[in-house]
Design a protein around this nucleic acid. Structure first.
Lengths: 208, 208
DNA sequence: GCTAACTTGTGAAGGATTTCACAAGCTCGG
DNA sequence: CCGAGCTTGTGAAATCCTTCACAAGTTAGC
């Protein structure tokens, strides 16, 4: 299949959230116009995004909420369960696991690691925090799909290398540090500092 | 000034982080090639990004780390202090405030709000958690620049409306919900669920 | 002072993404 | 069964962003 832009995939997530909310309100059908309004884009954009994957609507009528939900879940790979490990038993990891829809969307936390002896062994939600040294053996056994990296900014790269070496090929990095991964490993960064700086830039340049 | 792409501003943040790390290692000069390698882009991109704001390098030599750092800080609006309020005294807000470089980059938390009576009044870092009802009066008095919204996904919009009404015009939203803001208000969303779904999509479509 | 070696800054080209605009297809009412 | 009214799906156009390629400016060595 043709390469799909990152921006398109992100919007699909937003559309899916709208569909869920709309269904919860009892909505049975929707339109590209509704979806666009919710997502802050245009109806043409919505239709173009969907058109990369097929045609899911009915001309004149719109989209069936149930059908489009199913299609988007399939496209986004949410039809199955993904095993997630969290590296770094801090506040962010904890916040992540309590996010509504995290587990419900098929992301199951199967292990939490830390290198702080004071944290290791403590209960943490329904997990016991394990020493980071266990990562390799655990990964060989349990084959997690995704690693969430939620440790302080220092020495992030060694941990990434360890995760990659262990055989996990998708990483969500919350540390405000740039890391390198080999080809074949998918990396996403969530960087609060960068977002704040984006706001700072916007405020600074308000009058243009 | 001509409109600057969001992607450009984000990269400027990355360049700035490299400069800080490089300076800490004793680096005095750098090049577009170095910056590009760190940021995972190309040297042409780096030079183009910078060229929107001026010419800060010396042909044949590269960039002075100190000079370019100062320029980027100025461009990003980090030359001054921004007053930040955090709405939602949960784990994310707490994690945010302990991020290194948060305070140091000029983002000062001046208040924390929550609507949970059990949290109100409790100490939280060096702040006392205040009732959300105080937001309007506090804002009129203290004139914060940025609101960080770190509350659960339900009922985010009313809180956004309240923040906007109070007169804050930059919002960083951590709730996994789409919110609407009027023109003139800058909104950034950080959405962990969306990032995970992006990874899910990548994993699902690995063999293409 | 001249040449070789570098690296920036930037128009122009290329590629990617968004927007436009409209034909195609569906439903409903009469 | 037909026409009016909608809304989708999609080529084409427009816009935006990245990459290319090279002139221009700088330093260092001789």
């Amino acid at each position: 299949m043709k390469h799909i832009a990152d921006s398109t995939v992100r919007r699909l997530s937003v559309y899916l959230r709208y569909l869920e909310e709309h269904a919860a309100r009892g909505g049975v059908t929707t339109s590209s116009e509704d979806l666009a309004h919710y997502a802050g884009t245009t109806s043409a954009q919505v239709r173009k995004d969907l058109s990369f994957f097929g045609s899911f609507g009915t001309r004149g009528l719109g989209y069936s909420v149930a059908e489009l939900t199913a299609k988007l879940e399939d496209i986004l790979g949410l039809g199955r369960e993904w095993k997630v490990v969290i590296v770094g038993a801090g506040k962010i990891g904890s916040a992540l696991s309590t996010y509504r829809g995290f587990a419900q969307r098929g992301f199951r936390v199967i292990a939490v690691y830390d290198n702080d002896p004071r944290k290791i062994g403590s209960r943490w939600d329904d997990q016991v925090v394990r020493p980071i040294a266990d990562l390799e053996d655990d990964t060989a056994r349990d084959r997690p799909d995704i690693a969430v990296l939620a440790i302080p900014a220092d020495d992030v790269q060694p941990e990434v290398d360890r995760i990659v070496r262990a055989g996990i090929s998708a990483i969500l990095n919350f540390a405000p540090a740039q890391v390198q991964v080999p080809a074949g490993v998918t990396l996403k960064n969530v960087n609060m500092a960068m977002e704040l700086e984006g706001l700072s830039y916007a405020l600074r340049n308000r009058d243009d």
